Simulated assay, not measured.
Amino acid sequence: MITIYTTPGCSSSRKAKAWLKEHNIEFVERNMLTHRPSVAEIKTMVGKTEDGVDEIISTRSQIFKKLGLDLETLSIQKLFKVVSENPCFLRSPIIVDEKRLLAGFSEIEIRRFLPRKTRKFYLQQAQLLVN
């Protein structure tokens, strides 16, 4: 099952939900501000990234800047706790399933959540267009 962590008013979250619905992909939505991700959930997210915490944390957040956090010196346990208490530090949306994670919205990257048969079909169609 796919879980999409969203924040209210986020246009990327709206785009991602619309894309999933358009492709008939079932998902559970979690508003990160009203249902904060736990430390365990954040650890799981980081475990599914390619670039670690840099992939899921928005250092452009006003609160992040205001607190003056330095990711290089903060222990990982402290970072997980701070992020759990301040979910606005997380990029939005964050889409996860059993194996994959996508932070933010990308029309190309979100395709990884299509069922394998559908991805294969689209690939075959694209190859026909090229030939």
Rank of each mutant, 00 (worst) to 15 (best):
Q62I: 13
E26K: 15
G9Y: 00
I108S: 13
I56F: 02
R111Y: 09
M32S: 06
C88R: 11
I94A: 02
E72W: 13
W19V: 08
R111S: 12
D97V: 03
D54C: 07
K66Y: 10
P87D: 07
T34D: 13
P115V: 05
P93F: 12
S92M: 08
A103P: 00
K66S: 11
T59I: 06
P87M: 09
P115F: 10
T6A: 00
F27D: 01
G104C: 05
L102V: 04
K66I: 12
H35D: 12
I42Q: 04
N24T: 12
M32H: 03
R116G: 02
E107T: 01
I4D: 01
E55W: 08
V28W: 02
R60W: 05
E22F: 10
V46H: 06
M45S: 04
L67K: 14
D51C: 10
W19E: 04
P87S: 04
Q124E: 15
E26A: 14
S13W: 00
V53T: 14
R100N: 13
G104W: 06
D70Y: 03
G104A: 07
Q62E: 15
T3D: 06
L90F: 00
V28R: 08
R60Q: 09
I94V: 05
L128Q: 15
L90A: 00
G104T: 08
K66T: 13
S75H: 12
R112L: 02
K21F: 15
K120A: 09
E98A: 12
L90V: 02
V96I: 14
T59M: 06
G68Y: 06
Q77N: 14
I56R: 02
I57A: 03
T49I: 04
Q62P: 04
K48C: 07
C88L: 14
K81Q: 12
D54V: 10
N131C: 08
K48P: 06
